[in-house]
């Protein structure tokens, strides 16, 4: 899973960069900017945003501001708090996914097209429902894992996150 996301996300962000690069070159060097390029670029852009967020849910690194956690001293209390927040997240996420599903169905029915190349906008509009559904599933998975940890009473392991956290600092040192 880690690999799938790594390659997909890097491919998407590179595609976005390359499309911008092409626009500069065709406009400035060849004096003939490509029509409709921005419409094509929107597809990887939106999937990049949404799958980026899905990956944050998968890694359990969505942005949080747990003010309350500061006041808790034991790991167990923190875990219980995490469970509660996971549970709330799942309720909200399911509700949002339901509305995203209605949007998904609507855009499939209306089948809009972009204004220059007439690409079906469904290609990227569908990302929201798919993304939110995956985010909900990953959150349910975290809830399950945290719950098992709580009843078995051993600290949880987070292998994915550690590798990425150390990435930037080690790599910078290497570059010196």
């Amino acid at each position: 899973m880690e690999r799938v996301f790594k390659y997909t996300l890097t491919a998407l962000i590179s595609l976005v960069a390359v499309s911008q690069f092409i626009q500069v070159i065709t406009r400035y060097v060849f004096q003939t900017p490509v029509m409709g390029l921005e419409e094509m670029a929107l597809i990887p852009t939106i999937w990049l945003y949404i799958l980026g967020s899905v990956n944050a849910s998968r890694e359990d690194t969505q942005i949080r501001a747990n003010v309350l956690e500061i006041f808790l001293s034991t790991d167990k209390a923190k875990l219980v708090l995490h469970l509660i927040s996971d549970l709330i997240s799942i309720v909200i996420s399911s509700w949002l996914t339901w509305w995203a599903w209605r949007y998904f169905a609507y855009s499939m029915r209306v089948w809009k097209e972009t204004s220059t190349l007439y690409l079906p906008t469904f290609v990227y509009e569908s990302a929201l429902f798919i993304g939110l559904a995956l985010m909900t599933l990953f959150t349910i998975n975290h809830l399950y894992r945290n719950f098992m940890t709580l009843i078995k009473n051993h600290p949880k392991q987070d292998n994915d996150v550690l590798t990425s956290e150390t990435l930037t600092s080690t790599a910078t040192k290497k570059g010196q």
Binding site: Q23, T32, P33, G36, T116
Partner: peptide
């Protein structure tokens, strides 16, 4: 980003840039 405008610009001696 409307085809008609881009084509018009190109055909009346300008360079249409989205």
């Amino acid at each position: 980003p409307v085809k008609a405008f881009q084509l018009t610009a190109d055909n009346i001696g300008f360079i249409g840039s989205p």
